[in-house]
Design a binder for these strands. Sequence first.
DNA 1: GCGGTGACGGTCG
DNA 2: CCGACCGCCACCG
Length: 108
Amino acid sequence: MASPSYARIYAVVRRIPRGRVATYGQVARLAGLSNAARQVGYALHALRGPTALPWHRVINSAGRISLSPAAGGLEQRFRLLAEGVVVGANGRVSLRRYQWRPARKRFP
DNA sequence: GCGGTGACGGTCG
DNA sequence: CCGACCGCCACCG
């Protein structure tokens, strides 16, 4: 990770509980960043390769897997299903049921 | 330094 | 429920 922003982003992603999901924008806000949803996607993309980070728990605000199947969307779907998150054939996930809702929003 | 780009998001038709 | 547009902003060639 080259920037402190990435570190913050990764720290938030790491807190997403198993079986729950968070949106890119949500991660950005929780990381104390602003209008940085796009950066979150970039930070995750920068991981490339095996990682302990639960990157698959991050989806877009529409409640869908944003990553193309070939680029990893398939794996993401697979991982989510493995932890009990229902994913529709079109990559659809019910935010209503699975979105992570931390007790406190943002950190001081 | 500049312009294109994208694992985004909100709005509008 | 789409798709088109636009605002955003760090990366990369």
